[in-house]
Nucleic acid binder design. Structure first.
Lengths: 218, 218
DNA sequence: TTGACATTAAAACGTTCGTTTAATATAAAT
DNA sequence: ATTTATATTAAACGAACGTTTTAATGTCAA
């Protein structure tokens, strides 16, 4: 009964895509509804018809685009981690850096993803509740439980969390500050440089974590 | 001859202050000129009179507020470093983390500073040229020349730079994502927590840098 | 073919935007 | 005292904003 035609809400999908790209690129306040509908090749009123208003479109972008992508990233991380046997700081750091810097996403998609996240980290809106509750906190706890057994003796759980946050700060930074990093290092942000960054993050993180195993280095 | 009355351009100063706070808080596109002039307690036209237009006010904020503050930070770093004898990875990391997380700035000022920087890192505008050329690149080179002699044998200069960028990613992150970090860790971002973060960054960085000295730890 | 419903389209709503203009105030210079 | 340069003010400009309204489509079940 509720089965509609194939391209039932193709417009809705296009709006979500373009809205996400623009929100990531320029931030919520700097993007106009007209800009979105123009990029999505649809009528101005479509945003209000499909999403009630601009603000709700923004949080919908997180709900139906950002969170599922974050889940895909986590799944990719778990798969490539499981393929390496029981988790150690080495394998965790390796799988993390690879999933978040290379991983299953296109370069554009990854940039969008971390730009949106960085914006919410800097000035949290309603969308941050979603990011924190559905993605960050559960994943960080998962990572903590993986790393804790391999960490120096009686490490406080807060310290484990800070270590994880530090790794994430690097992942985030090397993703969202591409232009700046290219400019400062003088290197183009291409596949080769990305590999270099993964290697660096893994090494730096491993040492930072205080892991004693040396096999993953160099 | 050009000596005007006391409050000659007090308005100009107030506009710069409020503009910086608002640009940092919400981003260029999401701040209106009316918002700025209202906060600065002056007439709407004052922005265009003193700064030609909104865009020029933004880059002027960087020129006469952000860069000088960055210089103050660097000076503070150099002074507290010099007080500890010849620079080693330990003393450099310690002085860096302290200067950028506690340092000479008020908490508000520091948050503003890193929010503005993060915005430019994410989507560089004309202001990023200033940030990169006048602050980042020279300072990073200074740091590199300090760290290089103490680093493992034949470390490529690119690798030294990546290490420095990693430390900065943490400093940046722990400054601009305060709300998120408080929320995730469950700790209020107060003086005690800031000290905890400084300690963590120093330890993590030191190990990440591959420094062999242990005296600075714990 | 018809009636109901989902979607798109065009036009207009009132508001706010950045900027400009013209008038006014102030204090130093002549 | 008058001129000149600097600074502030109130008012208005057209453009763009988010949203609503109304009409025109398209698509199924009956």
């Amino acid at each position: 009964m509720t089965i509609r035609k194939d391209n039932h809400d193709l417009t809705k999908e296009r709006i979500l895509n373009e809205a996400e790209a623009l929100f990531a690129q320029k931030g919520f306040g700097a993007v106009s509804v007209r800009e979105i509908t123009c990029a999505a090749n649809c009528n101005l009123a479509a945003v209000n018809y499909h999403f009630r208003n601009k603000g709700n479109l923004y949080i919908e972008v997180f709900r139906v685009r950002w969170v599922p992508r974050a889940m895909r990233l986590q799944k990719h991380f778990r798969r490539s981690l499981a393929a390496q046997g029981p988790p150690s700081p080495t394998t965790v750091a390796q799988a993390l850096a690879e999933a978040f810097l290379k991983g299953p996403l296109s370069d554009e998609e990854r940039q969008r993803h971390f730009q949106l996240m960085t914006r919410e980290l800097g000035q949290p809106t309603e969308a941050f509740e979603i990011v924190a509750d559905e993605v960050m906190r559960p994943f960080f706890e998962e990572l903590a439980s993986m790393l804790r057994p391999a960490m120096p003796k009686g490490l406080r759980s807060e310290q484990v969390l800070l270590n994880i946050l530090s790794i994430f700060s690097m992942v985030l930074y090397f993703n969202f500050a591409r232009v700046a990093i290219s400019r400062i290092t003088g290197r183009e942000y291409d596949a080769a440089f990305k590999n270099r960054l993964v290697k660096h993050i893994v090494e730096f993180s491993l040492k930072g974590l205080g892991g004693l195993e040396k096999e993953g280095l160099r």
